[in-house]
Design a protein around this nucleic acid. Structure first.
Lengths: 143, 143
DNA sequence: AATATCGCTTGCACTTTGCAAGTAATATGC
DNA sequence: GCATATTACTTGCAAAGTGCAAGCGATATT
């Protein structure tokens, strides 16, 4: 099935961070709060790259940094991620139901369009705030 | 995140088998073709039950058998599963794009409604055929 | 030139997994 | 009713994977 690359504890978290939080460096993932070990993180990034879900390329302005980015195959996981976030908000996530996610649940298409737009334009503004914290709802676009 | 229970290689496969293949016993999962070891399968079933995603109850007509069934929390993973299947069909699955899944991609709402109906009515007819094999497309209902 | 930062790699203890075999409870065939 | 089958596990053990702390090389900053 579609789980060779995704069926482990960390890969989907990394993809989520890339997709909806605008994270893109090793350090950001590391400090992401979930507590992934550096060796595992390195390994998962390699696997995701090997699976064609992300790419890695050096930042021009700082040769130490590597920019990780979702491929098209990777961004196409957005619908899966969205549904997963909605499900998680419904059943598990910290008491705070995070109205941002409820909003996401109601505006599927809009959220997906916006997510893909940010990916295409390399706009790293997060879709989701760091954790909860009310935060402004998704701004309306075009429509 | 929503991955304590799902973030491993087997849990989502079990859920898929329950949801779209109509599997419901230990043996069926075991022979599901993915090759899960019996100890791991037993462990995952326990965890999924503990997580409130499935229930286990003895079959009345055969006291050896245990019927596993998705809870409401479990069946609510249907949108996630659907998107995952669609993504998988698009990028990974065996050359055969399995037009059943393409059909699923085009009729999201209908497929979800049908999936939930089967769950509610304990209708174990599979939504997806065993692997590929053309098989008749989803029959239209109500609409 | 010295120090800091970033993205890793290494070593090692610990945990989880996979495999084969075995077991308890129920069902079936004669 | 007794032997055999079937189902859902459990156990033991080797192999693989994980988590943690420390270290390393390349680049950047002062």
């Amino acid at each position: 099935m579609s789980l060779e690359a995704l069926g482990d504890r960390w890969s989907l978290l990394i993809i989520r961070d890339l997709m909806v939080r605008g994270y893109h460096t090793f350090k950001q993932f590391q400090e992401s709060g979930e507590g992934i070990a550096t060796n595992i993180l390195a390994d998962r990034l390699k696997r995701l790259e090997a699976a064609g879900i992300i790419t890695a390329e050096k930042e021009k302005t700082d040769g130490r940094k590597i920019n990780y980015r979702l491929t098209e195959k990777g961004i196409d996981l957005a619908p899966v991620m969205l549904e997963l976030l909605v499900w998680g908000a419904r059943y598990l996530e910290t008491g705070a139901p995070c109205h941002v996610i409820e909003n996401m649940a109601k505006n599927h298409e809009q959220v997906l369009t916006e997510t893909r737009r940010r990916w295409q334009e390399r706009d790293l503004t997060p879709i989701l705030p760091r954790f909860e914290s009310p935060g402004p709802a998704l701004k309306k676009r075009s429509k």
